[in-house]
Amino acid sequence: MKKLMTTIAAVALTAGVYAEMTADQIAEKANQAAYYAGQDGRAEVEMKIIDKSGSDRTREFTLLRMNTDNGNQRFYVYFKKPADLYKQVFLVWKEVGQGKDDSRWMWLPALNLKRSIAPGDKRTSFVGSDFVYEDVSGRNLKEDRRELVDTTDTQYVLKNTPVDPDSVEFSYYTVKIDKDTFLPRYAEYFDKNGKLYRTVEATKVETIQGFPTVTESVVKDLNTGGSTVNTFSNIEYNIGLKENIFTERFLRRPPREVTK
């Protein structure tokens, strides 16, 4: 008994000394806050793509997300605008297990065709925006090594370095994460020469059904001078989605959850 007490004391002492969380723990909590709120969720998204001359293009889509097991997730993106994307669906099966890759498909309604998106395309622009496919469902934590480079009164700052540098266009990126909500607020991406070329910022955060939620985010491409603003509305959590919505069946016939 005495021995146990000593152990507990020792652990408590150690915890006291290292009260700060590790970089991996912070990243894990941030990932949960940003992508896993609730069991499932729905949002309507307006995506405004602005080029350096200031002219813009708008995409509107409904996003469904569901947590399955072991951290895996399903995403369903149903396009309403513009007209040439109408009824297209982008489907993601996010697989976080060791040695697993995410699967991504695009449904092209005019051709009645399900087209796979190659794993190597995950850093490709999502429907012409400054977001990449990977941003929709979140970058897999195991793809990066990370260190805690700074802690302010309100934020943690993580530096993330890719495990496989050849698989991405950046050499590293830093993320500022709010201490209270663990939402990532500001990310900076640096190219292979160490030059800052891309920023992603959560510009508005609201609490919805108890979950701190990003309701506006802005990504800027400093090389092209372009930017993309995502505005989220009608956000709902725990709406009771069925897993089979995220299959070919519901590519052919989009569910009411997205069409209404």
């Binding site: 796979s116 794993p119 698989s167």
Partner: peptide
Amino acid sequence: IQGSLGSGL
């Protein structure tokens, strides 16, 4: 049969 192989399909 179809699927991913390496970074391609």
